[in-house]
């Protein structure tokens, strides 16, 4: 029981397939694994192995065919579309390969965006967003638009946006995939800090072994099957 309690994510017999034409592609087959609270997990595997698919399922932006996903005790496969949206707003922070900031919003406004769904006052939103931007070391770039920032800076804004709501888990899909080596290192260090200093549970998809090294634990996905750390 005690161990169960420290599992923040519990995945059981998870399967997912896509239909392309009259061909069915089994992307994930009967995947079972747990993620312990405060873990920094790297999910590796060749391109097309289903890493993003698995991440999306855990983050509640895609629907499984079969199996169970429990995050902090909530069985998210049973949630309706609307419930799932509320759940994501509270529980998941997202970091994407291509930063995915809203180009017409400033760094500050991008970070503030997820807070619009909370009951926070204007003042509280400002405080939270400023804090998050300070954590990623961009306190002096709040009024810059994404187009005025480098790739590494944009990704740090995206990280600030991911943590501003203090989510249960942070998911990152190849967060360094589009960055030069120096920026990639900064971003990875930042994620390590989030994990160590703030105790955030992070699930990061990557196919770069150097990135994966930063994580506490590495898992490999191959042909829809998950293997223990190599």
């Amino acid at each position: 029981m005690k161990q169960n309690n420290s599992n923040i994510v519990e995945i059981r017999d998870l399967s997912k397939s896509y239909q392309r034409g009259d061909q069915i592609i089994h992307v994930l087959e009967d995947i079972t694994f747990d993620i312990i609270e405060g873990e920094f997990l790297a999910l590796m595997g060749p391109s097309g192995s289903g890493k993003s698919t698995l991440l999306n399922l855990v983050a509640g932006i895609d629907k499984a065919d079969k199996g169970s996903i429990k995050v902090a005790g909530v069985e998210i496969t049973l949630l309706s579309e609307t419930e799932l949206a509320h759940w994501r707003a509270v529980n998941v922070g997202f970091i994407f390969q291509f930063y995915n900031l809203i180009p017409v919003l400033t760094a500050f406004e991008n970070v503030e965006l997820p807070l619009l769904l909370t009951g926070l006052s204007r003042k509280e939103r400002r405080e939270h967003a400023e804090t998050a931007l300070n954590v990623v070391n961009l306190g002096d770039r709040m009024d810059h638009y994404p187009g005025q920032l480098s790739g590494g800076q944009q990704q740090r804004v995206a990280i600030a946006r991911a943590i501003v709501t203090d989510p249960t888990i942070v998911v990152a899909d190849e967060p360094t995939g589009d960055l030069d080596r120096v920026s990639a290192r900064d971003v990875l260090e930042l994620m390590c800090r989030l994990n160590k200093e703030f105790g955030k549970t992070i699930i990061m998809v990557t196919h770069d072994p150097r990135s994966a090294e930063k994580a506490n634990i590495i898992r490999h996905l191959e042909k829809g099957v998950l293997n223990e750390a190599s």
């Binding site: 932006i61 949206a85 759940w87 707003a89 769904l117 946006r161």
Partner: peptide, 11 residues
């Protein structure tokens, strides 16, 4: 962008 907003929990 709509996909991102939906990801963040916007309906």
């Amino acid at each position: 962008e709509y996909a991102i907003m939906k990801t963040l929990g916007f309906g």
